[in-house]
Design a protein around this nucleic acid. Structure first.
Lengths: 335, 335
DNA sequence: CCCGTGAACTAAAAGGTTTTCGGAAACGTA
DNA sequence: TACGTTTCCGAAAACCTTTTAGTTCACGGG
């Protein structure tokens, strides 16, 4: 534990110059003789001088710090976004202040004040679902970007995965494999993600001039529901040749139950999941073809956009980020 | 977007007092007449004044901010610790600066300098495994607490799960159920977590005067390995009546393969996992009895200890936090 | 009337850095 | 010598808040 931290004053004294000169030397400014600069740099090194970011921030008004406000940092979705954001910032010497509101509006307000009093340069708000969430941007004084869960104010900037497009890709992949009797099993109807994926299914099928095999089966995001749905479906519509599941959890339960009933995946029934949650998608048998929402990229993009917004170049609206199909054995070509 | 933020100067002017009086009124200090205090508070409210934490920190030398340095925030283990820490801090008006070094020492050094220059009051270092990791505390000038992955310097403060104790609990549970031929399947030997759990198994068995059924099977932390181990074990030692697996992933693969071979869990073979990773442990059939390391509590404890260390009351050494057995169907009483 | 006391308030310093502006020295030109 | 130019350096202000050390005023006791 060093007693007191070295200040630029100490550096200047040791180098035998004024603090103004020391500052210029350290920051690579003009108007310093090369030999003087060397002396200052050597002094700073010797004292292991680290400029005080508080003093600097106080003066410049820029803290080079952003807040990351999440409702659910433990969740499947917050983390990759957080990682991508931290990645984008880290490269540029930014720091991230992390706050978890735990879904509580009071707590969120509390954290917001704390972040503002720390004079963050900007804010990323990460939602726990793709449902609209209340805006926090009103009169905040700093730019805000929403990731995963979009703001309900169209003037705000939001980045969300293109779930409609993701579902279209999934269904088109099944169609390309020659499957024609395609069912859809998904999570709760109050999730916009589930509704969007249903819309994508309808869209892709109607463009192909086909009907969905049976009604959409709404349930929960669980393996249990996937198993249950498989049993119902094999009973009621044994003729289906493909199923698109609204999540990898549902798909994992689905393939397990199908396998136990003695039907083969993908030969009899091809299965596609959603999320590319690797602990599930790569460990089921067969491994799951699934839609990856590229959340880390989404987070990174949101962070980069926040930079732009800090510089005054914001592009309001909801930006939909493309998903990506990850093909594994559960839809391997049955040629 | 408000133009400029209100300062205490603006508040003082509006209230018609000096900034010293305004400061005292806002901070609830003495020597301010009640009516004056009211005027100041009203002015602050009107201007929606937020004190500048930078100026305050510059003066007091306390930033009320801690750094959280992780090697692996996406991992299974970093997140709960992070959550627990954020929880403990959040309650006390602390803020958390999050840095992810991605396992890169250079990057870690870089983040360390950034945190120091921001004058954090303390630091939590979260490891990605329970293996010893290099200390960062040397001449740092701020207190550091290590969570999950302990420091190699015994003068530092570390909090780790008691894996030996966790394994003892697991084996004792199997013994209490009357099982006597207990095998152990775990992950790679270079994980201290795996070695500690092996030590716990030996300890509990020798106290009961028993031998482990066969050698410990070392593998990877995957379902694939769990399935493979089950096949080997059922072939080589069909008489075993219980298996303790080194992780839930291994256990999930294990029960699946056992079930496919027509043996019953828990009737023929009881199975215990480790980690209580709920997406696996509650969704296997049967649901897994498993050891929970209470990581969120560990994180919270580390954070609370950091407070103590900031106040100069540190307790060096490695603190082992007790684990907890979560009993589910994979060891249901076979009475 | 003088002085001491206490209440309520204020001026100023401190904290560390960056930036602006002015000053000094050195040198060249008329 | 007088003057202009260039190069290098330093004094001081600015950022915002808290705290210290007064200052002012009213009032009561002697």
């Amino acid at each position: 534990m060093a007693g007191r931290r070295a200040t630029i004053n100490d550096v200047a004294s040791l180098a035998g110059v004024s603090i103004a000169t020391a500052s210029k030397a350290l920051n690579g400014r003009q108007d310093v003789r090369a030999s003087t600069r060397q002396r200052v740099l050597a002094a700073a090194e010797e004292l292991s001088f680290q400029p005080n970011a508080l003093a600097r921030g106080l003066l410049s008004g820029q803290t080079r710090t952003v807040g990351l406000l999440t409702s659910d940092s433990a969740g499947r979705f917050g983390i990759p976004v957080l990682l991508g954001a931290e990645d984008a910032f880290g490269a540029g010497e930014m720091a991230v202040l992390l706050c978890d509101a735990r879904g509580d509006a009071i707590r969120e307000q509390h954290h917001l004040r704390a972040l503002l009093s720390r004079r963050v340069d900007g804010l990323i708000v990460v939602g726990e679902s793709t449902n609209l969430r209340p805006s926090v941007s009103r009169d905040l004084g700093v730019p805000v970007v929403y990731a995963y869960g979009p703001s309900d104010d169209p003037e705000d900037v939001s980045f969300v995965p293109d779930d409609v497009g993701g579902a279209v890709m999934a269904v088109n992949h099944l169609l390309a494999l020659g499957r024609r009797r395609i069912a859809h099993v998904t999570g709760p109807e109050h999730y916009k993600a589930a509704r969007d994926r249903v819309a994508g299914v309808k869209l892709a099928l109607s463009e192909a001039g086909l009907e969905q095999a049976g009604e959409t089966l709404w349930g929960t995001w669980s393996q249990r529901w996937g198993r249950h749905a498989a049993e119902m479906l094999l009973m009621a519509q044994p003729e289906i040749d493909a199923v698109f599941c609204g999540s990898d959890q549902v798909a994992a339960g689905f393939v397990e139950a199908v396998r136990e009933r003695g039907r083969r995946v993908p030969d009899d029934i091809a299965v596609i999941g959603y999320d590319n949650w690797e602990v599930l998608s790569t460990e089921t048998r067969p491994a799951l073809t699934t839609v990856d929402m590229n959340l880390e990229l989404l987070g990174r993009t949101a962070a980069q956009h926040l930079f732009a917004a800090i510089d005054g170049r914001a592009t309001p609206g909801v930006h939909r980020m493309p998903c990506q199909l990850v093909i594994r054995d559960s839809t391997a070509s049955s040629a």
